[in-house]
Amino acid sequence: MSTQTEQQKQTSNVLQPGTSAPNFTLRTTPDQSVSLDQFRGNPVIILFYPADFSPVCGDEVSLYNEILPEFQRFNAEVIGISVDGVWCHLAFSKHKKLRFPLLSDFEPKGNIAQKYGVYRKNDGVTERALFLVDKDGIIRYSYVSPIGVNPGADGILKALESLPQSTEQKGSTPT
């Protein structure tokens, strides 16, 4: 876990709500790429995380995988980004039975994370960070968690709920 000072230093230039989300095109498999702007028209949840294969059950990506139906009620897409290579992502994705793409911010390493202000230069990995990009490509929520703490999904769900209701919700779920 990082110290308070480190944490502040790392998070000082995180892209804030109201900013236009920088576009990117990153590989998700050896022969496929995903671009942010291909999702234009739908909200996108971008999940930066330090590394594939973290040793906990129900880590961040598994959690988001599990609650994908909740995000889909808002027609939101989920993408994960780390500096791991595509082959590592493939293995991890298969292992966790993920139903959303993992993108590889591998070359130049951490380039996209840097643009979003969530690259930890000293560690060579991305922060644990969440962004919600609205249907017009504007960041509406950003959050950086202490690197050792998985942020959960309560904040991002609240942010999704507070987006203008441009997309029709599919049904409702009891809470």
């Binding site: 059950c57 309560d154 769900l157 809470t175």
Partner: peptide, 28 residues
């Protein structure tokens, strides 16, 4: 099944971030 689902959704809304997640007097 619905009861289990309600537990699950209440967890998501409360910031459950993996298993197990503990709350002490209502705070994660």
């Amino acid at each position: 099944a619905l009861r289990v689902r309600q537990d699950f959704l209440s967890g998501i809304r409360s910031g459950v971030n993996g298993t197990p997640t503990f709350y002490i007097n209502g705070m994660r």
